[in-house]
Amino acid sequence: MNSSLSIQPSGSLSLWERWQRYLRQHRDQTLAWTILTPILIYYFFFSIVPVLTNLVISFTDWNGFNAFHFVGLKNYFRFFEDKYYRQVFSNTAYFAVVSMVIGLPLGVIVALMLNQQIRARGIYRTLWYIPTVTSGAIISQMVIVFMAPYGGVFNLIVTGLGFKAVIWQTDVNALRNIILGYTVWKGVGSTIVLYLAALQGIPRELYEAAMVDGAGRFQRFWYITVPMLTNMTTFVFVTGIIGGFQIFEPIQLISRGGPFNSTNVVLNQIYNDAFKNLDFGIATSSATILALFLLFASMISMRAMRQGEAA
C-alpha cells in the first residue's frame, strides 16, 4: 500500500527514497504504530464507543423499546437521593471490603505456608486454587441446594454443631455471610497464587545476607518479605476491589438481593433495572457511577502505594 506514495522524484532523492529513509530512521515509531493502529481502532469501537453510548443513555429515560427523551442528570440524582440505591451501594462496598479484609490476610498466610519447603505443597496449592476455576453460576446453583431449610447441608452442619437451624433465605446476617463465604472461597486462590509468585521472586541472597548479619526469623520476615510484597499487595488490593464491586452471579442466583434489599448489589440492580424494570436510564447511570467510583478508588490506592514506596 505504500507503493502509491512513490509518485515523482524530486531533487537528488525520490520521495519514495526519502520515505524509505524516514522509515529507517524512525523504525521504532513506524513499527509501533503499525502494530498499535488496528488494535487501537478495535479498542475505540469496542471499549470507548460503548462507554460513551452508556453515558448518552444514562441521560435519557429509555425503556428499551420506545423513543426516549433526554432527562439531564435526573437519573444520577435518583441514584443518590433514593434510599434504595444508597443501600445497594453500601451493600456492595460491604461485600467488597469485608471479603478483602478476610481474603487478603488469609491469602498471605497460606502463601507464606506454601512457600516453605514442605511435602505435597503442589497438591495444597492446587486444592486452594481449584475454587477459582469453577463456574460462578454452577456453584451458586449448588449453594441454593445447600441452603434448603429442609435437609440442606448448611443446616445439617449447624444443627450438628448444636446450634438452632437457620432459615437462610430470611436471615440477613446469615445470607450476607454465605455471600461473603462464597466470595472468599472463590477468590482466595488467585490471591495465594499471586503472592506465591511474589514470594518466590524474592532473591535468596537477601535472606542469606540478612542471616549473616544475624537477623532472626521475624526480622527477616519484617524487613525483607513484607517490603518485597508491597507492590503485590497493591495489585491484589486494586484488582480485588474492582472485582469485589462487580459481584453478580451469587446475588442474582442465590439471594436476588433480598431480604429487605440487604444483599442487593450494584451489578444485580443494574441487571434488574435494565432487563426486569426496563429502565435503561437508571441502569446505565448506575453503571457510570460504579465506573467512576472504581476509577477513583484504584487511582487513590495506587497513589497511596506510590507514596508508601517513596517513604
Binding site: P50, I57, Q246, Y271
Partner: peptide, 18 residues
Amino acid sequence: LSSTMLPGIVYQLPIYIM
C-alpha cells in the same frame, strides 16, 4: 489498561445494542 478498571457492565449493554 484503564479499561480493566471499569466494570464490564459499562460495555456490555451498549455492545449488545450494537
